[in-house]
Each structure stands twice: as structure tokens, then as C-alpha cells.
């Protein structure tokens, strides 16, 4: 007996109601658009300051000292590395960077992790100058590879000085 083929059913078109999905997607889109903040990335410097070591302690290697003297308005009056006066401005920080490299020999040497640097700013000095000093002692960015080359890893602060005024 020949199999009897059923006649094909007409395909029913199912209409999906897209409205709720579009509603939700637009809500999400508006949320993300409003909360979006395009800004430069933040980086950080990690500092370990164990208790009672805000000032120089008797470690194996003596600390390098960076002294930042402020004008009354908070700008930099003088930058000193040890007893050497390096002046002011970007050239002073470039010189500080060079001097630190002289001390450690080459980036990433064993001295990089052994030697600590103590930053000693005047109270009034703008923090941005401290950050420039930390940047200078931390290393430099290779102009070709754009990767940081580390000089000193241990940075600490001296005890805060009293305000002059």
C-alpha cells in the first residue's frame, strides 16, 4: 500500500512583539551613555611605609635624600639631591633622573630594589612637585618602546615639616 503523504501545513508566521526588548535596550543604552566618562587612565606608585619608618632608618644601604624647598606660594624654589642643588623646573627633574641613574648604574640593577629614596618637601609645596620628584627617581619611559625603565622602587616620605606661616 502506498504511503499517503500528508499535504504540507501552511507555515504560520509568528509575530514576535519586539517592543519590550527595544524599550529595555534603549534604557540600557541611555544609562551607559550618561555614565560614560572618557578620561585619561590613572596610574599609581606603590609605597610601603612600615610603622616608625617615616624617617630614615638604619637599613643596609643609606637612603638617597631628595629635598624640595618651596616658595611661599607653593611653587618650587629649589630641588636638592643629597647636598647638591639641582635648580628648578623640568631641567632640575631631568638632572635628578640622571643623578639617580648614576647611583644605580643601570635600570633594574640590584641597587634599584636595595636603595630607598626619601622625599622631604616643605609643607607648602604643591603636591604636583612631589609627584614630579617621585617620577624622576622612579625611572623614565623608554622613548622607543614606551615602556617604563625602573630606577628606584622604594620611595618614602620624611616626617612632615611645619608650615612656615
Amino acid at each position: 500500500m502506498a504511503a499517503r503523504m500528508k499535504p504540507p501545513r501552511p507555515v504560520e508566521k509568528i509575530n514576535i512583539d519586539m517592543t519590550p526588548m527595544i524599550d529595555v535596550v534603549f534604557q540600557l543604552l541611555i544609562f551607559f551613555m550618561l555614565t560614560l566618562k572618557l578620561r585619561a587612565d590613572e596610574g599609581d606608585f606603590s609605597i610601603n611605609m612600615p610603622l616608625g619608618q617615616s624617617q630614615a632608618t638604619s637599613e643596609q644601604m643609606p637612603d638617597l635624600k631628595v629635598r624640595l624647598i618651596a616658595n611661599p606660594d607653593g611653587t618650587l624654589a629649589a630641588l636638592q639631591f643629597g647636598r647638591r642643588n639641582l635648580g628648578v623646573g623640568d631641567r632640575a627633574y631631568a638632572e635628578l633622573n640622571r643623578q639617580v641613574l648614576n647611583v644605580i648604574g643601570r635600570p633594574g640593577s640590584s641597587l634599584s630594589s636595595d636603595i630607598a629614596v626619601e622625599i622631604d618637601p616643605d609643607f607648602e609645596l604643591h603636591y604636583t612637585e612631589v609627584m614630579k620628584a617621585i617620577t624622576a627617581v622612579s625611572g623614565r619611559v623608554d622613548p622607543i618602546s614606551k615602556q617604563p625603565r625602573k630606577y628606584l622602587e622604594k620611595v618614602k616620605f620624611a616626617k612632615p615639616r611645619k608650615p612656615k606661616a
Partner: peptide
């Protein structure tokens, strides 16, 4: 003022916080 940040670090040390990220 840099001194304010140093004092902040000192206050943290008083409360036994010793790790910082600037």
C-alpha cells in the same frame, strides 16, 4: 600642600595602615 599628604600618611600609620598607593 605636600605636608597635608604627608600628615595624611602619618595618620594612616597611626592606625596601622602601612601600604599606600599614590
Amino acid at each position: 600642600p605636600a605636608g597635608q599628604v604627608q600628615k595624611l600618611i602619618e595618620a594612616c600609620q597611626n592606625q596601622q595602615f602601612t601600604k599606600f598607593s599614590l
